[in-house]
Write a protein that binds this DNA or RNA. Structure first.
Lengths: 230, 230
DNA sequence: GCGTTCCTATGAACTGTTTCACAGCCGGAA
DNA sequence: TTCCGGCTGTGAAACAGTTCATAGGAACGC
């Protein structure tokens, strides 16, 4: 293992199976880029020339409506990759990615990325699995919009954040993400006010506790029950 | 070109770049399967052992809620492939696929499919593009649910069907698909009654004309305006 | 410090959509 | 033929969630 970047990339799942020389070649092609919190990395509609690996920090994937409204899709953490959709089909960016915190990413040029795919079947296959996972996730989100009401969707979103970006402490789970109520609404397809109302209710009945930039889930089971519309 | 199956497969986009011997090998591995109208090909939740190529007929992709309600995602036609998601990530089927008409498909075993991917980078790359397209489509659907009201979503769905499964005749477009109003509702996330109401309104104002098993769009521009919430 | 701006909080009015209830129609089965 | 099940048609009532209006608090810049 040569430098820090090579080291970092080797720990990213989709590059896991790569031989050392291939990894070195990849890291030669990649460059590091740092972002502050709340910066836009790629914007929906832009021309796409790069593929990204998130090395540090968390970022949000969302898509804008004509009037500037937002629909959020995902929160990514270290080790996740993004930007592949537009690179693979040659069309403009399909969504916007914004940092939620300070982030560090590895940026790979479109050309280099394509070469890598063509020359390394294992990577292509792993990337296929990543895309399959995305399709699954989007399908579930669509299903939720169709079958669940606002409180159920909100509960489900909290649970998702808890398992994917939370830290357990006993029976509680802390979610340390500075998402505004507006942003929660963007995720579940509801207004800021609705989100506020339900969070308030749940705080009153001690299901959750929220302070600034941190939300704690006190009663996982109760939230699960709500998430399943029971 | 040897037999009919080889011939058919060579015309499917993702197998376009395949050398003749590879194509022959693939068609050895595939078998043909025929379905009548309204049969289930794969069901959400089932174990997945096969990948499919739709050779003839149309099929619907949908996903069921707990109470049996349906959320529809896509209508596929000849040349399209499906069933790859569960094969790629090894988990159960992510959606249900049902024939809308008589269909003929090529079925490829999971094992053979994986071998094919590992040995043929061009196919893996093409499949990546297919998946990217699906992600794009799902993202758009999610966006629509968030930003558009029922009439706009319905108009958009009609326009989508028109361009993808319709036949032009002058300024009109015919959509010859036997989808019930309930199924239209499943596609756009609305009730049968709402769908009925808007189709009725549009029929009255001569935007569309619908008879049994066939819907004709008379005024594309008007529908486009509705689809954009104007 | 102070002002500005963004976020949370909360209730009242409004509205798009669903739910419910019922009727009629067509096609297939017997 | 008649009966039955599934699809379409339609309106009234109910409701979930949004919109609007308004207030207070925390954070940031100067």
């Amino acid at each position: 293992m040569a430098d820090a970047l090579t080291e970092s990339l080797s720990r990213v799942w989709i590059f896991g199976g790569l031989a050392e020389d291939e990894l070195a070649r990849l890291s030669d092609l990649a460059r590091i880029k740092a972002y502050k919190a709340r910066e836009t990395i790629v914007e929906k509609g832009d021309e796409a020339n790069e593929f990204f690996v998130l090395l540090r920090g968390r970022a949000k994937v969302s898509t804008q409506g004509s009037d500037g409204a937002d629909a959020a899709i995902n929160v990514m953490g270290p080790g996740e990759v993004f930007g592949e959709v537009a690179i693979l089909d040659g069309r403009p960016r399909s969504a916007t990615v914004t940092t939620l915190e300070e982030c560090e990413l590895a940026v790979v040029d479109k050309r280099a990325f394509h070469d890598l795919l063509a020359s390394s079947p294992p990577i292509a296959v792993k990337l296929l699995a990543v895309l399959a996972g995305r399709i699954r996730d989007l399908t579930t989100r669509l299903e939720d919009r169709a079958f669940l009401d606002v409180p159920a969707r909100l509960a489900k979103q909290l649970l998702w954040l808890a398992t994917n970006h939370g830290t357990e402490s006993g029976s509680r789970v802390r979610i340390e993400l500075k998402l505004s109520q507006q942003e929660f609404g963007d995720f579940i397809g509801a207004t800021r006010e609705s989100v506020n109302k339900h969070l308030r209710d749940w705080t009153r009945s001690d299901l959750i506790k929220h302070e600034r930039d941190c939300l704690e889930i006190l009663d996982l089971d109760a939230l699960r029950a709500i998430a399943e519309n029971r």
